[in-house]
Write a protein that binds this DNA or RNA. Structure first.
Length: 420
RNA sequence: GCCGGGAUUGCCUAGCCUGGUAAGGCGCAGGCUUGCUAAGCCUGUGGGGAUUUUCCCCGCGUGGGUUCAAAUCCCACUCCCGGCGCCA
């Protein structure tokens, strides 16, 4: 969430940020609630103070006085109780609005209405020229007997698929290859729980706004991870870190579960499903280094595609396409020859102190007098299912799929043929 | 799941029996002192509010209750540790 004092002192900044995101938000209402809240709080505290003084006086006076004080306190308690109720309600009203305000876009983020206004900042790789018409990954998956869409649907319903044979092995190899590559660059590996508390989902900003996009367990008030970001960002929730331990780099594999409620199927095959694998990167940094760290994070994610030799481009998201918790986001899009277009395989964001404030994650030291909120960053490194699909498409031959060189130590085979 | 022990401020710990408004150490920050990579001493340290050199409120796992007054007594819950049971 954003800082309430910023809204008090500089509502114009927040108003402009909302406008840049093309959001219609009742900021006036929030300010009004906050004003009332503080008014009532002041009154409440005044009464509590009176009560505290009477209580302190109590043991020092005679019996008769004691009776009088006890009665007076009873009267004040009634006032306090009713004020407490009012204050609580006003704070809830204020916070319910506050929690729905997205992060403020960084000054370097271009203004735009939606996807079409995102800016390509670089392209990498040479798009292969095919001597035959390249097939889409979902045709290849069935042709080579490595993806089973029908059985996936049978097991879990629409939006699920199963991998078979060398397809299953390739998926597993990709996960290990990605994690190893990031660990070599200094990321610490975490294997997190795949479920998270309501509090945790709230901390990253996925709740309350995106409750419909997540799976929830019925009996235990737990949510299935839509991304390992929730686990990694919440890893240090409610802690105070030391300046000298920052920045912290984490990498984690997790299955990711998304309900995709009310979304039409714009991407075929394995590209938009309810469950997919992802290797996630998270950084915890000081405020002064976070944007620099974002550039490095994007580069670390890109490195996977470079090693796999898959053409890609990097897009800087405009204000209208920016995620809720993010101040600045780069998407990395891999080349899909069958569709003649780029498709997102990673999204790397700097959430500044937006999540840190929600999860109460601070640091001390480094010349700071008081604890300060850290900055949190996250990025896919990469979405495994989509990378899998990109490999099928970019490495296809008419009678086989070639396995990229760097993956062969992980797969133990160098191609997938029709006989497999 | 059952029985017992526990949870105190960034961390560690005292206070709980016997109710009176959180003591100490470490860390961190600032200051002072010193002729040498050090040490010592002093001050500050969570959240919130205001008329912001100051004052006030809240805060002892969470939520209730008793009381003029709760870290302290009572009840429920959560989590941690140990024992038993179950178990990939």
């Amino acid at each position: 969430m954003i800082d309430i004092t910023l809204i008090r002192k500089n509502p114009k900044i927040v108003e402009e940020a909302l406008k840049k995101r093309n959001l219609d938000f009742p900021l006036d209402k929030l300010i009004e609630y906050d004003k009332l809240y503080r008014q009532k709080l002041k009154e409440l505290e005044k009464n509590r103070h009176i009560k505290n003084e009477l209580t302190l006086k109590f043991p020092k006076v005679n019996e008769e006085e004691k009776q009088k004080i006890a009665q007076e306190i009873k009267r004040i308690d009634e006032i306090i109780n009713s004020l407490e109720k009012e204050v609580k309600e006003l704070k809830e009203n204020r916070d319910n609005l506050l929690y729905r305000i997205p992060n403020i876009p960084h000054e370097s983020v271009p203004y735009g209405k939606g996807e079409e206004d995102n800016v390509t900042v670089r392209e990498w790789g040479e798009k292969r020229v095919f001597k035959f018409k390249p097939l889409p990954h979902y045709i290849l998956g069935e042709k080579f007997n490595i993806i089973d869409f029908n059985r996936g649907v049978k097991l879990a319903g629409s939006g699920f698929y199963a991998l078979k044979n060398k397809g299953a092995a390739l998926e597993r190899a990709l996960i290990n290859f990605m994690i190893d590559t990031h660990v070599k660059k200094g990321y610490k590996e975490i294997f997190p729980p795949f479920l998270i508390t309501t509090e945790g989902a709230f901390g990253t900003g996925h709740l309350p706004k995106f409750a419909d996009d997540m799976y929830k367990t019925e009996k235990d008030d737990l949510w299935l991870l839509p991304t390992a970001e929730l686990a990694l960002v919440n890893f240090h929730a409610d802690e105070t870190l030391n300046y000298k331990d920052l920045p912290i780099y984490y990498v984690a594999y997790s299955a990711c579960f998304r309900r995709e409620a009310g979304r039409h199927v714009d991407l075929k095959g394995v590209l938009r499903v309810h469950q997919f694998n992802k290797v996630e990167l998270v950084k915890i940094t000081t405020p002064e280094t976070s944007f620099e760290e974002l550039e490095k994070l994007v580069n670390d994610a890109e490195e996977i595609l470079r090693l796999l030799n898959i053409p890609y481009r990097v897009r800087l998201l405009c204000t209208g396409d920016l995620g809720f918790a993010s101040a600045k986001t780069y998407d990395i899009e891999a080349w899909f020859p069958s569709q003649n277009k780029y498709i997102e395989v990673s999204s790397c964001s700097n959430c500044t102190d937006f999540q840190a404030r929600r999860i109460n994650l601070k640091f001390v030291g480094g010349g700071r007098k008081t604890p300060e909120y850290v900055h949190t960053l996250n990025g896919s490194g990469l979405a495994v299912g989509r990378t899998f699909a990109a490999i099928l498409e970019n490495y296809q031959e008419e009678d086989r799929i070639i396995i990229p060189e760097v993956l062969r130590p992980y797969t133990g085979f160098s191609e997938i043929t029709l006989e497999d």
